[in-house]
Each structure stands twice: as C-alpha cells, then as structure tokens.
C-alpha cells in the first residue's frame, strides 16, 4: 500500500529525515517509536503533504502511484488520513459542516454524487455511536474548547467518518489519561480492517498495549535504525532510547 524509499526532508535547510525506508501492506499496523526530535512527526507531516517541509530526496508510492507531488487534499481523497498530534481549533466551523464538506469533496473526487442530508446525518449518528462520542460534540465548533481527550477522540471520529485506506496517527496518546487512552484505542481498533493500514506514531510503549502493532520501527536521527515485532516496544520501554543510540553508535 505504501512504499517509502530513501525519503529525505528538510525544514529551513536543516535535514530532519535522512533516508527513510518503510513498506506498509494492507491490513498491517506499523508503530513508529523514537525519542523526541527523531523525525517522527516530520515523517507524518511529509506524508500528509504539509508544505512546511521540503522533500529533498527519495520517493513515496501510495497504492503504486507517486504521492509526493500531490496536494494534501488530493492525498486525503486518495485515502490518506493524518491524526494530528495537536488538532487545530476552528471556531465558528461546526463539526457537521466540516465533515459534510470533507465527505462531499472526497465523494466528488471519486465521481460520486453528494451525500443527501439524511444519509449524512445517519452516518454521523452511526459513527458517533461507534466511537462513543458525545452527541453534543458534533454540534460544536471543530475542536473549540475541547479537552485534550476530546480532541483526540474527535480525530478518530473523523477517521471513522472518512474511512481512509491509510491512517497515520501522530502521537494520538500524548496528553491522554489512561481512560481516554483506552477509549481512543478502542475506537481505532474498531476501524482496523484487512483492507486498510495504520501507522501509529508514539513516544511510549503504553499505547501499543491497546493498539497492538504488527511491526515496530525505531526512528532515530532521521533514520529507521531498528525494526522488529511488538516485543521491540517492550525492550525499548525497558532499556530506554539511549540503548538504541548506543547500539547505533557502537
């Protein structure tokens, strides 16, 4: 589904990604871990198409087609979803009009007619129930005045609405207490399907107790320095990131 080959990216001339290689197939969940500043969030942003970063080398294929030349909205319509580490508050835009615009723009791209108001409201209702989202949340402005937990839950709710092929969840666990973390993880797990894939970016192993990955990769200094199965996450938790750094330097 996703092939990242020797991807390099800079911000303000400073190289953050120094040659990333990653293969993600349908049905797989990949966890990317790493210390602060290792490039985890940059990788997520670059895949979603944020123009803050300049890609200086390598290529990314999504479902066999080059991804990097596309605008963020076209990537989203093609099936990529970014769950933000810091979801943006947009006062005045209701969740309903936000989601309706998003869904209809995506449908237009796929040559489908606009969703009727009735169908749309039914979809909202179903997904709210699935994600255990408070009804009132959907009538409020996008993320405005939401608690940290509500914002993250709202990201997963949007993911449920848009049904992406590839979801990249950027530190979805940051700022969550254990109860919120469980709710969010439960929501994510309900969206796992054999025909979609996820990249879960996290600093801590804790999240991976609830969203169990097929593969764990450790990002350090802009490169994936170690890959393994979920046991790698426990090893990291035990030994700390210094272990990876030392091992690399050795």
């Amino acid at each position: 589904m996703l092939s990242i080959r020797n991807l390099k990216a800079t911000i303000n001339g400073r190289e953050i990604l120094k040659g990333i290689n990653l293969e993600v197939k349908e049905g797989e969940v990949h966890a990317i871990m790493g210390p602060n500043g290792s490039g985890k969030s940059t990788l997520a942003s670059v895949l979603a198409g944020r123009d803050l970063f300049t890609v200086t080398g390598g290529e990314v294929l999504f479902q066999g087609s080059p991804l990097l030349g596309l605008t963020p909205e076209v990537r989203a319509r093609a099936g990529i979803f970014l769950g933000f580490q810091y979801p943006v508050e947009i006062p005045g835009v209701s969740m309903t009009s936000f989601m309706r615009t998003a869904i209809n723009e995506q449908r237009k791209y796929r040559g489908l007619p606009e969703m009727s108001a009735t169908d749309f409201l039914k979809l909202m209702r179903d997904k709210k129930a699935l994600m255990e989202i408070d009804s009132a949340l959907a009538s409020r402005s996008v993320n405005e005045g939401f608690s940290g937990g509500e914002k993250k839950k709202n990201e997963i709710f949007q993911m449920a609405m848009l049904e992406p092929k590839l979801a990249i969840l950027d530190e979805t666990d940051s700022g969550l207490d254990i109860d919120a973390l469980k709710t969010v993880a439960t929501g994510v797990n309900r969206l796992r399907r054999p025909d979609n894939a996820m990249i879960v970016i996290t600093h801590y192993q804790r999240l991976l107790d609830y969203i169990v990955p097929d593969f764990v990769h450790v990002l350090s200094g802009g490169r994936i320095v170690k890959s393994g199965d979920k046991s790698l996450a426990y090893e990291l938790e035990e030994k700390g990131y210094d272990w990876i750094k030392e091992e690399n330097e050795a």
């Binding site: 909205e73 990537r75 989203a76 319509r77 835009v93 936000f98 615009t101 998003a102 402005s141």
Partner: peptide, 22 residues
C-alpha cells in the same frame, strides 16, 4: 487551520471559505 481542513480532503478554496465563514 487551512492545512487541517486540507488533510481531510477539503480544497484550499473551500477551506478558505469555511474559515472566512467561521
């Protein structure tokens, strides 16, 4: 905010309209 809306599939034009409306 524009990037956030784009990342959900909304074009820059629509994103700007939504934000102005907001």
């Amino acid at each position: 905010a524009i990037f956030y809306l784009q990342s959900r599939g909304i074009s820059v034009r629509e994103a700007r309209l939504l934000l102005m409306y907001a």
